[in-house]
Simulated assay, not measured.
Amino acid sequence: MDADLVECRACPRLVAWREKVAIEKRASFANDRYWGRPVPGFGPADASLLIVGLAPAAHGANRTGRMFTGDRSGDFLYAALHAVGLANQPTATRIDDGLELRGTRITSPVHCAPPANKPTTEERDNCRHWLDTELELLKPTLRSVIVLGGFGWQALLPVLAGAGWMIPRPRPKFGHGAHVRLTGTTTIDLYGCFHVSQQNTFTGRLTPLMLESVLASAGRTAGLLP
């Protein structure tokens, strides 16, 4: 699936943007060779915990080729994953830096960097079949899901329903600390967490302790943490 995903050119606006950014670059990364392609999920294929973000950052994952790698959002996320025992190191700088996740996979509803970090509804829907496939492959082992931000929450709920999990009516609302147990072919725990964007982390809306608390709760229900 990942091999097919990185060749996708389904969304003309996203293809043009990700490739434009990869050519023009940011001055601080002028000597880097940008990935400039769709970014696949990162982590083991038999993960019991899935973290769902929004989309790759233009000069982060779109540069390095790995989810949440090479930018401050990733610095914040991986430091917290390491702090609770779900990553072997607290930093993520490049695709070959030795980072490994323990029973945890990271993905997103949109796999190409969007202008202004805002994919359209059509782009989200074009990308949905990748998330459908990823959930289907993870279903035998998946026990917990953390969604970073409202966009991911809204994108993921219909995917979970399509994969056989029963979504309560009315649909659960996104919020930091939201927690819903979903039943179906298997039982999973769904958690909401503010996105690790600088808009949230620099303002203190999301603190390391807040993120670590959600990660620890999800890690326990996934059977990864005591």
Rank of each mutant, 00 (worst) to 15 (best):
residue 101 L to C: 00
residue 127 C to G: 02
residue 36 G to H: 11
residue 84 V to H: 12
residue 90 P to L: 04
residue 80 A to Y: 01
residue 13 R to T: 10
residue 104 T to I: 05
residue 109 P to E: 07
residue 122 E to A: 15
residue 52 V to L: 15
residue 105 R to Y: 15
residue 97 D to R: 02
residue 58 A to T: 09
residue 120 T to C: 10
residue 138 L to G: 04
residue 91 T to V: 14
residue 142 L to P: 04
residue 49 L to W: 14
residue 65 G to Y: 08
residue 61 A to Q: 03
residue 47 A to I: 02
residue 14 L to T: 04
residue 15 V to S: 04
residue 131 L to C: 05
residue 87 A to R: 00
residue 75 D to V: 07
residue 52 V to E: 00
residue 45 A to G: 07
residue 124 R to A: 11
residue 91 T to K: 13
residue 69 T to C: 15
residue 28 S to E: 08
residue 74 G to L: 05
residue 67 M to R: 13
residue 20 K to P: 07
residue 91 T to C: 10
residue 125 D to F: 13
residue 37 R to H: 10
residue 106 I to P: 00
residue 106 I to L: 01
residue 111 H to M: 06
residue 42 F to E: 04
residue 64 T to Y: 02
residue 140 P to A: 08
residue 115 P to L: 08
residue 82 H to M: 03
residue 70 G to Y: 00
residue 68 F to S: 01
residue 20 K to V: 11
residue 75 D to W: 05
residue 94 R to M: 02
residue 69 T to K: 00
residue 71 D to P: 01
residue 110 V to H: 02
residue 20 K to A: 15
residue 59 H to D: 14
residue 69 T to V: 02
residue 80 A to N: 07
residue 67 M to I: 07
residue 103 G to T: 09
residue 103 G to P: 01
residue 24 E to V: 14
residue 99 L to Q: 01
residue 92 A to G: 08
residue 100 E to L: 12
residue 15 V to M: 03
residue 131 L to E: 06
residue 88 N to V: 00
residue 29 F to I: 01
residue 27 A to K: 12
residue 77 L to G: 08
residue 91 T to S: 14
residue 71 D to H: 14
residue 81 L to F: 06
residue 119 P to F: 05
residue 108 S to M: 13
residue 118 K to V: 15
residue 72 R to Y: 11
residue 129 H to C: 14
residue 52 V to P: 00
residue 58 A to G: 10
residue 41 G to N: 09
residue 57 A to T: 07
residue 112 C to A: 11
